[in-house]
C-alpha cells in the first residue's frame, strides 16, 4: 500500500510545479505581446527599404556590375548558415525544430561537396550543434536582446557577417529562423541573405515603382550603402520573428504543462483519498477482530 506521506509530498510538489508553469505562461504571454508590437513597428522601415531597393536594383541590373552583395562572388562553394535559436529552454519544439532544419541543411550542403560554416545566435542552437558540428562553428552569440531586442543587436550580427564576407570567408549566406505565425504555430524559415535576392514586386508594378528616380550620389554608391543596411534589417526582422515565436512557443508549452499538472494533481488526490480510506478500514478491522478475540 502506498505511503500516505509520500503521496502528500508528491501532490504538493506537483502543485508548486503548476504554479511555476502557469506563472511562466503569463510572463510569456505578456512578452509575446511586446515582441509582436515590436515586430509590427519594424514593418514600415523594412517595407520602404524594400521599395527603394527594388527601384534601385531595377536601375542597376541593366549595367550588370552591381555590388557583390547582390550579384554574389561568382561561386557558391562556401556556405554560411546563421542559425537563430533562443537562450533558454522550456519552449516546446522551438529549438528542436530549428536545430533539426539546420542539421538537414548542413548534411545536404555537405553532400553536395560544399563547405559549411555556422554562426549561431542563442545558446540552445550552439549547445545542440556543438557536439556534431563543433568544428564548423565560426562564432556564437548569446544573450542577444535579452532585455529588449534593439536594432543595434541585429547590427552587431550583420556586421560580423559582412566583415566575413568582405574577407572572402564565404560565398552564400543563409539565415534559419522561426517565423511567427501564431502562438501555437511557428514556421521554420530558411532565407538567403547573400547574395541578396531582390524581392519580387507585385505583378503589376505601381506607378511609384516605375517612377524614374534621380540618384544622389549615383545608384551604385547608394546601393553599396543600402545593401549592408538591408542585411541588418533582414537580420533584425529574423531576430524579431524568432523572439515572438519563442514566446509563443513557450506560452503554448507552459499552458500544456499547467494543464497536465492539473490532471496529475487530480489523479494523485484520488489515490491519496482511496489510500486514506483503506488505512481507516484496515484499522477498524484490526480493532473489531481484536475485540472479537477477547
Amino acid at each position: 500500500m502506498p505511503n500516505l506521506k509520500d503521496l502528500k509530498n508528491r501532490i504538493s510538489s506537483v502543485q508548486s510545479t503548476r504554479k511555476i508553469t502557469s506563472a511562466m505562461k503569463m510572463v510569456a504571454a505578456s512578452k509575446l505581446r511586446r515582441a509582436q508590437e515590436q515586430a509590427q513597428a519594424s514593418g514600415p522601415y523594412a517595407e520602404r527599404m524594400g521599395r527603394m531597393l527594388a527601384s534601385l536594383a531595377a536601375n542597376v541590373q541593366g549595367s550588370g556590375n552591381g555590388p557583390k552583395l547582390m550579384t554574389g562572388t561568382g561561386s557558391d562553394s562556401v556556405h554560411l548558415l546563421v542559425i537563430v535559436s533562443s537562450d533558454r529552454g522550456l519552449c516546446g519544439a522551438f529549438n528542436g525544430s530549428i536545430v533539426r532544419e539546420a542539421k538537414r541543411q548542413i548534411t545536404r550542403l555537405q553532400g553536395e561537396g560544399k563547405t559549411v560554416k555556422l554562426l549561431t545566435v542563442g545558446r540552445k542552437a550552439r549547445d545542440q550543434l556543438r557536439r556534431e558540428f563543433g568544428a564548423l562553428m565560426v562564432h556564437g552569440y548569446e544573450d542577444v536582446g535579452r532585455r529588449r531586442l534593439s536594432f543595434a543587436d541585429a547590427d552587431m550580427v550583420s556586421q560580423k557577417v559582412l566583415s566575413m564576407f568582405d574577407a572572402g570567408e564565404f560565398d552564400v549566406c543563409t539565415i534559419i529562423f522561426n517565423k511567427f505565425k501564431s502562438a501555437i504555430s511557428q514556421i521554420v524559415t530558411v532565407q538567403q541573405l547573400i547574395p541578396f535576392a531582390v524581392p519580387e514586386t507585385d505583378a503589376a508594378p505601381t506607378d511609384e515603382v516605375k517612377a524614374v528616380y534621380e540618384f544622389e550620389p549615383d545608384e551604385e554608391q547608394i546601393l553599396a550603402e543600402l545593401l549592408p543596411r538591408n542585411l541588418s534589417i533582414q537580420v533584425y526582422r529574423a531576430l524579431l520573428e524568432s523572439a515572438a515565436s519563442e514566446q509563443g512557443a513557450r506560452m503554448t508549452a507552459m499552458d500544456n504543462a499547467t494543464r497536465n499538472a492539473g490532471d496529475m494533481i487530480n489523479k494523485l488526490t484520488i489515490t491519496y483519498n482511496r489510500t486514506r480510506q483503506a488505512y481507516i478500514t484496515k484499522e477498524l478491522i484490526e480493532i473489531i477482530s481484536g475485540a472479537e478475540a477477547l
Binding site: S42, P44, Y45, R48, S150, F151
Partner: peptide, 9 residues
C-alpha cells in the same frame, strides 16, 4: 513627410 527608424515609424 515620413521619418522611419528600424524600430518604429
Amino acid at each position: 513627410f515620413e521619418l522611419v527608424s528600424p524600430e518604429k515609424l
